[in-house]
């Protein structure tokens, strides 16, 4: 049932002839209540799907913005259980926007893969990205998620050759995430021209929509990627807005949602010939 939420959303966007915009927010950043407020505001601000990060103390593939977001969340007592609680609260008012959880293996090991898959599905999670669980280590987790009807979203990267791509997309569902730069999140900038052939390769190998992330910061860049990919993910640039708002004592929710609106508008306009904001 929950798998269909991702499929239904991509099918609808395909009919509209546009790419999806996927904002990434860190659960519990800057605190649980504010983060829930942001989450609830995302669909109206233009989010087609939402990635929710669950914090980990040692996020080895993240650049400074998401590292700091995780630290802010952990310091306010955010946990994986509270993350699922936040998503369940979001689902009370939104039953259609797909939610993808993203994070690292150890909190899942602590929970237990089978119990977690069940509890995540119950909370309304549609997909899971585990940065440090490659296909080789995913067997038990993948089976548990499959049984619970949650998609295990796979990552492909500039280092994935054709042979590797086959291994990555085997048995995957929902969509495939293309990590557009070799590096950590939020440092290098993705280039649409370089990304385009990779997206096509991943699409062909998987038969699924391809979302592009890691290194998209501005509406202009988001629009350029939206012309070649099925979805555009922006994370570090949004969590940076949280940091700035906290530092300047501004309304965090308003600041983040306004950035989301600008990015979503650019993605929606990308294929209609309109100039992005």
């Amino acid at each position: 049932m929950s798998k269909s939420r991702i499929d239904a959303r991509f099918a609808a966007l395909k009919a509209e002839g546009r790419a999806a915009f996927i904002p990434y927010v860190m659960a519990g950043d800057p605190d649980q209540a504010t983060a829930l407020g942001i989450l609830k505001g995302l669909p109206a601000a233009g989010a087609d799907l939402i990635e929710v990060g669950f914090p980990f103390s040692d996020p080895m593939a993240e650049g400074p913005p998401i590292q700091r977001a995780a630290q802010r969340a952990i310091s306010k007592g955010m946990t994986l259980a509270k993350t699922l609680g936040t998503i369940a609260a979001f689902r009370e008012t939104d039953q259609t926007t797909p939610i993808i959880l993203m994070g690292y293996t150890n909190p899942l090991v602590t929970w237990g893969y089978e119990a977690f898959a069940h509890d995540a599905a119950e909370a309304g999670v549609d997909g899971l990205i585990v940065v440090d669980t490659p296909p080789e280590e995913a067997g038990v987790l993948a089976a548990a998620l499959d049984a619970a009807g949650v998609s295990l979203i796979r990552l492909t990267t500039p280092t994935s050759d054709d042979a590797r791509l086959k291994v990555i997309v085997r048995g995957t569902s929902g969509f495939v995430y293309y990590v557009s730069v070799a590096g950590v999140t939020g440092v290098k900038e993705a280039d649409a021209e370089t990304v385009a052939p990779h997206v096509e390769r991943v699409r062909k190998a998987s038969g699924l929509p391809v979302a592009v992330g890691f290194g998209i910061k501005t509406p202009e860049r988001a629009a350029a990627i939206a012309r070649v990919a099925d979805a555009v993910v922006v994370g570090s640039a949004l969590v940076d807005e949280v940091a700035v708002a906290v530092d300047m004592n501004e309304d965090v929710t308003a600041r983040v949602l306004s950035k989301v609106e600008a990015l979503a508008k650019a993605v929606r306009a990308a294929r209609t010939g309109q100039t992005a904001v």
């Binding site: 593939a61 440090d132 490659p134 796979r154 280092t159 590797r164 990555i168 990590v179």
Partner: peptide, 20 residues
């Protein structure tokens, strides 16, 4: 062959590093 000592070890790394 999977880099395991019983339950321990393995290759829990981001996909970018797997080919490396």
């Amino acid at each position: 062959a999977h880099g395991r000592f019983g339950d321990y070890g393995g290759q829990y790394v981001p996909e970018t590093l797997m080919p490396l």
